[in-house]
């Protein structure tokens, strides 16, 4: 029993079905479009939503970059590249500027994206209102009625309890003044990059069977209050120990011999380029 290898794994009917969902998502920025998520050879929760988007979009002339939490050679990225590579034979790259298609788990690259690029983000929990409402039937209605007081209230309660909006990653955003959207667990540092980005940003949740989109140059605003403005992660002036860059998202590392904490660019391809 051997596998038939169709280009990009899927039959063309499946790709078309996913592309139709993508078109709808682009037409309604921030709205979660349900789709018949396929079972993939990698586990649900390991990027099957992003992978299905990538496989439905990829063509022979594409160059693909895959990142997992900022790294090009982390487990998830390696596995996805191997699967797409084996079924398409297309070129792979680590360099953000050379890629036409970028699939990422929880980071937006440091190098600014262009109009000729598509960024695919992997999404574990697409519903930004899920923490305040468990039922899908109810959250669908809340979105339809643009009833987002619960989303603001939960941030307000965070401030009351902790003195700060405690959301770590996945801080909810308002898309084009209409839909509250989960940006996927990107750090707050990356939220401003969603706003008016020249690239098409697609978000795919395989297990939860949802696709949504931030089309190029869409207004995206992180939820906050006038007296408690949205705040990105603060590295206290730290810089990358390898390339010296400041003002990028940093990984925090611990040196067991000296007992000191030091930092390194989280976007490994960005850092590699700048390394002396």
């Amino acid at each position: 029993m051997n596998h038939t290898t169709h280009f990009a794994f899927f039959d063309e009917g499946s790709k078309r079905e996913i592309r139709r969902a993508i078109l709808k998502a682009v037409a309604i920025p921030g709205y979660q479009v349900p789709f018949a998520s396929r079972e993939m050879p990698i586990a649900r929760g390991w990027g099957t939503g992003g992978l299905q988007l990538t496989l439905s979009l990829v063509g022979l002339n594409d160059t693909l970059k895959v990142i997992d939490q900022g790294a090009d050679d982390s487990v998830n990225a390696v596995s996805i590249k191997a699967l797409v590579g084996a079924s398409t034979g297309i070129a792979m790259t680590d360099q953000t500027s050379q890629a036409t298609l970028i699939q990422s788990r929880h980071r937006i690259p440091e190098v600014p994206l262009t109009e000729n690029q598509i960024l695919v983000l992997q999404v574990p929990m697409p519903e930004p209102l899920r923490p305040i409402e468990a039922s899908e039937q109810v959250t669908k209605r809340l979105h339809a009625e643009k009833e987002y007081s619960g989303a603001y209230l939960s941030l307000f309660e965070d401030i009351l309890r902790y003195g700060t909006m405690a959301a770590g990653a996945d801080h909810p955003v308002m898309v084009e003044g209409r839909y509250v959207m989960a940006p996927s667990p990107i750090p707050r540092f990356d939220n401003p990059k969603l706003d008016k980005n020249p690239a098409l940003i697609l978000l795919g949740a395989g297990r939860e069977k949802k696709i949504y989109a931030v089309p190029p140059y869409t207004q995206v605003k992180s939820l906050d209050f006038e007296d408690h403005p949205f705040r990105v992660e603060d590295f206290g002036g730290a810089h990358c120990s390898l390339c010296g860059t400041q003002g990028v998202f940093l990984d925090e590392l611990y040196d067991p011999t000296t007992g000191r904490t030091w930092h390194q660019c989280n976007d490994t391809s960005f850092c590699g380029r700048n390394a002396p």
């Binding site: 939490q69 900022g70 790294a71 998830n76 980071r107 998202f249 990984d251 989280n266």
Partner: peptide, 18 residues
């Protein structure tokens, strides 16, 4: 099993944000 096992993936960035 997919979502439970995904907890074994690196969460360096999300954890840093927390």
């Amino acid at each position: 099993t997919g979502f439970l096992s995904h907890l074994k993936l690196p969460h360096y960035v999300t954890f840093q944000a927390k």
